[in-house]
Design a protein around this nucleic acid. Sequence first.
RNA 1: CGGGGCGUAGCGCAGUUGGCAGCGCGCACGCUUUGGGAGCGUGAGGUCGCCGGUUCAAAUCCGGCCGCCCCGACCA
Length: 483
Amino acid sequence: MAQQAVTPLSEDVSKWYNEIIYRADMAAPSPVRGCVIIKPYGYEVWEAIRNGLDRRFKATGHQNAYFPLFIPESYLRREAEHVEGFSPELAVVTIGGGKELEEPLVVRPTSETIIGEAFSLWIQSYRDLPLLINQWANVVRWELRTRPFLRTAEFLWQEGHTAHATHDEAQFETLQMLDIYADFAINEAAIPVIKGQKSENEKFAGALRTYTIEGMMRDGKALQSGTSHNLGQNFAKAFNIKYLSRENVEELCWTTSWGLSTRMVGAIVLAHGDDKGLRLPPMVAPIQVVLLPIYKTEEERAAVESAVSRIAAELKAAGIRIHVDNREETPGFKFNDWEMRGVPVRMEIGPKDVANNNAVLARRDIPGRDGKRFVSQDGIVNAVRDLLTEVQANLLADATAFRDSRIHDVSTYDEFKQVIEADGWARAWWAGEDVRGSVDEARVKEDTGASLRCFPLDQPGGSGKCFLTGKTADRVALFARAY
RNA sequence: CGGGGCGUAGCGCAGUUGGCAGCGCGCACGCUUUGGGAGCGUGAGGUCGCCGGUUCAAAUCCGGCCGCCCCGACCA
């Protein structure tokens, strides 16, 4: 055995993740602490995410723009909570062109401030509203503990920034974008995320309300995979974003912001992986079908290669992302290699298949012999397309079943602890202190390691008794250990 | 910032009486292989983190410095 197998996910998720990211060629170590190089195979997953989201943003009237990487330090300070929230993790440039700068420039950790400043200049009248802008950019947050994709000092994301005339319009926008994230996560990334609202303690620094989509990873941990904020009038006040109403009265705008990052790549890896490696949903997989020619003699090789190139051309013409693996490795090696890299469908074509006008299709979501079957070369494009659809649906179904089996309703703290200890998510009535620095949330975190992930938008209604305080609660919260 | 560990080939590591710089994987070439991780042979590849000291001789001993990783407070 030349190549070592990857550490099984069932044995050590953390080790599995670190190995698979590099072995599958998604990322490479970088010379800079806390950063990674995103390699083509990982970047193409990001491109699929970007395309899926960008299409949705455009369809809802947003336009892309680009704002500077550098933000005057004073901008950050204009919104009190905002600067307090971000200052520990800022990278600041103090020297430019060999000279000390008059005012230090912050490398953006997010762009509310510089975009807010721009908005204040662009918006004059109610006719300028709503203003719906998105930018694709990199941001820097000086994190101490980093992991490829899940948390890095620099990461790629999109950040949407909008301004509206009323609170209700801003709130509608905030929830609309949350829906878009959830729709993308569920229908393209095949991750059955839960939409919810963040507690005061967990919300974005400077926001009125923060919403989240939470995904469950294969080890039961929660991962915040996208966020949408109703910023109220906090940034409008700080940056003087005002408009003249139809009645010729000066009014403050209501703004929103929403972001989804390369963390989603990590989410896809951790939500679907198995012992053998990645399992990529077809809609975001860089390679949807890998074709493996198999032969011994030169005569066989000619016949096999001609069949392979003909089928490859057909699949390509049908818009299916394919790759023909012509490496001089053994078939057995290639099977394992592509399974490790999560390609949804593998097609084998050997001398026997050529003789029978067949091909072998193997699906990544069902390992071993059970996932393998013979298909005719006639109409193979449709067979492949159907199989890709099936794999996509099955990965979602699998992740959903996994999630549902690990979410438990609890009514006492003892039950709560048991659920968290078993790597599950606890759903319970909650009347704990809902403020920044909440002592109740801190206590739960200290006792169990779990944090309040969100108040799910989907609420049971009515009221119940809080599992921690015993007080009457009118909403349930979801708790879990998180990345 | 407090506690623990590590810097030797692209990656993972071994290297204790101080005495020619090693192993596995990967890489290159050749032959045999090829439907579930092939075998043999030949080869390329090194400022042993850096600076100084001890010594005939330092990866190894001593001093200093630098960097990285792991564990405790924040975060998409």
